[in-house]
C-alpha cells in the first residue's frame, strides 16, 4: 500500500514537471528579450543550453 502511494506521489510530481516543462517551452519569450542570455561563466558544462561550446573553451582555457 505504502509503495503505491510512493509511486503515486513521485509519478504525479514527474507529471507536473513534464507538463510545466512543456508549457514553459511553448510560452513565447516576451518581445525584446529573445536574445538575452545570462552572463554566466561558472562551470564548464559544454552542453549547457545557455552557452556555446566555443565560448566555454575561451573561458576555461
Amino acid at each position: 500500500m505504502k509503495i503505491l502511494f510512493a509511486i503515486l506521489i513521485a509519478g504525479s510530481l514527474l507529471g507536473l514537471n513534464v507538463w510545466l516543462y512543456k508549457a514553459n517551452k511553448n510560452t513565447p519569450v516576451p518581445e525584446g528579450c529573445e536574445n538575452l542570455k545570462p552572463d554566466c561563466h561558472g562551470c564548464g558544462i559544454t552542453d549547457c543550453s545557455l552557452r556555446r561550446t566555443e565560448e566555454i573553451r575561451e573561458d576555461t582555457k
Binding site: N17, A23, T27
Partner: peptide, 11 residues
C-alpha cells in the same frame, strides 16, 4: 517544477 512555473509566469 517551481522554477519552470515561475519562469512561465514571469514570461
Amino acid at each position: 517544477a517551481f522554477v519552470q512555473f515561475v519562469e512561465m509566469f514571469i514570461k
